[in-house]
Design a protein around this nucleic acid. Structure first.
Lengths: 94, 94
DNA sequence: CACGGTTACGGGGAACGTAAATATC
DNA sequence: GATATTTACGTTCCCCGTAACCGTG
């Protein structure tokens, strides 16, 4: 379970469509599809139902979505916090 | 900032020593050292002070440590939750 | 010169993108 | 036949481990 895979998962969950999510992430469909398959394989359960229009979240996927969003948010906050801590202790470059 | 890098960071922070952290993670020192350097490069600031005995956390590192632990915990919870959700909906294999 | 972290370097695996295949309507 | 995902396949890139190097007590 990598951060990249979680980003991919959230994008597909929100778009309901691998193709559109791929455009949004600036990658092509196959690697993105593989990210989802890898997550499903790792967790041992499908996360989406494949419907003619695209991808629809299953209950397992709904559960993951909440955690994934929180994790990605935490990562953002962590990076920002460290940079702020660095800026606070380091004298301004002027 | 990958999950692997965060795991490496926490191990080094807790051991205060790249060599011992590497043993704990079952990898060799060079890749582990590179994980730390990559994090420091990505965040634009050192996270450890290199002392003769090993690695000592800087304030920036202290800040990251809290977030890193939380993120890793969240990842654990996410995986467990999804597996539980899968088990609840899937009939027992007996 | 012992100890600890880092850099050099080569090889194997991971992951991308193009193209082809599959499935559903 | 159009749309959407997945698989095949070739190539590139990343990352590990071994070995060598650097800095400090």
């Amino acid at each position: 379970m990598s951060i990249t895979h979680l980003q991919s998962f959230v994008a597909v969950a929100e778009e309901g469509h691998v193709g559109r999510a791929a455009l949004r992430l600036h990658i092509t469909q196959p690697p993105l599809s593989r990210h989802i398959l890898a997550l499903e394989d790792e967790l041992g359960t499908p996360l989406f139902e494949r419907v003619p229009k695209g991808m629809r979240l299953l209950p397992t996927g709904e559960a993951l979505l909440q955690h994934a969003r929180r994790i990605l948010e935490e990562v953002e906050v962590a990076a920002r916090t460290v940079r702020e801590a660095a800026g606070a202790s380091r004298p301004p470059p002027a």
